[in-house]
Design a protein around this nucleic acid. Structure first.
Lengths: 213, 213
DNA sequence: GTCTATATTGAGATAGAC
DNA sequence: GTCTATCTCAATATAGAC
């Protein structure tokens, strides 16, 4: 006879993971407020009390979802400052890694973007701003070092930082809106190359210098 | 005696405008799904049937809100191609105008960004993608013209376009997230200057050329 | 841990008087 | 055009059996 108090014979923690995965997909495709607990549990093949058992509330499962990607991003920034190479290389490396973490967590990234740039949708507070500012600071530091090392011209490092952040963001946003025409890792690197080298043709350089571009 | 069937003595169309303004603020601060009809009508100082009388539904008032900004943006793009100046000037002019239209409609812009980059939140479909692609095309055309005119180096015009769009977007996004530290019109222009000129210090130009920066 | 059944609240929308 | 009163439905969350 089958054991009585087991039904789905789920491996350990599998229900929990299914709930998280389903919630991520739903939050990403409909938004936090428009997603109902009923949909989440249906997608996981369980009933409502199971969700409340594992996560206490709809807010609870949301917060649990945000945790891991934010931790990975923070870890990324921690390593960014302690590496070698030219400023160009280090900036490109940091940006490409941020882009890749983003792509790996595309669904949750969509939820985060929507809440960070847009209205919170009734979702519980998460300090996305802190992460973003840490990212900005990391890029700014690398740019300032590049200027000190005479790898970059003197100039407003903040403006440079915004242009760099803009390049990374646009690659991420394209991934969200038109993944079939993704800018990709390569495109991100080429954009950064443009920032470093410029696109203007100086009067004195009509023929030469067409190096990386 | 006072006229019987008038209460608030509202000027013509004032109730309608109040409903639109209130809805814009609420959609921007809470999101479409998380905003209730009750809140909208309370903010306008009327009751629910009034909203349904003017806009037929919650979706109706949303669509009405989206209309004007999208039309203004479309008009902007129409004029962008038929102007004179260098490619640099024309690109900067287009981008700065787009940025300014964005800032003028900051609340609605927030709602649009959230829905375009994120989940639709249960809001009715609006083709934001079409507008964005028209913007990309306008920038791309101007860049290609700049290359033909030897104002810019030969190179991948699409990559340049993304970098330009990224600069505009990051200015807009900063306006959404930290308006007190806005990049502003000036910052947007300086970012574009960086794209045009680059930030790298070539081996041959250690002393000269520090022009616009 | 997972279920059925239900409490409770508030949503979007409308009828019908004025 | 604007109100009061109400319909209908679905939401989050929980009680209590197994």
């Amino acid at each position: 006879m089958a054991r009585p108090s087991r039904k789905g014979v789920e491996p350990e923690g599998d229900v929990r993971r299914k709930l998280l995965a389903g919630a991520a997909g739903l939050f990403a495709s409909k938004g936090y407020a428009a997603t109902t607990v009923r949909e989440i549990v249906e997608r996981a093949g369980v009933t409502k009390p199971v969700l409340y058992y594992y996560f206490r509330s709809k807010e609870g499962i949301f917060l649990e979802l945000m945790r891991e990607p934010l931790e990975r991003f923070a870890a990324l920034l921690d390593t960014a400052t302690s590496e070698d190479g030219t400023a160009r290389e280090r900036i490109a490396r940091l940006c490409v890694r941020a882009y890749e973490v983003f792509v790996e967590h595309l669904e949750l990234a969509r939820v985060m973007f929507a809440i960070y740039y847009g209205p919170p949708q009734g979702a519980p507070f998460v300090d996305f701003d802190a992460s973003h500012i840490r990212f900005q600071d990391a890029v700014l530091k690398l740019l300032e070092e590049g200027i000190r090392r005479r790898e970059f011209r003197k100039g407003n490092a903040r403006d440079m930082m915004w242009a760099v952040i803009g390049a990374v963001n646009v690659a991420m946003e394209q991934e969200l809106c038109r993944p079939r025409q993704s800018i990709g890792r390569g495109g991100t690197e080429r954009m950064l190359g443009i920032l470093f080298d410029g696109i203007a043709l100086g009067k004195d350089e009509a023929k030469g210098r067409g190096k990386g571009r």
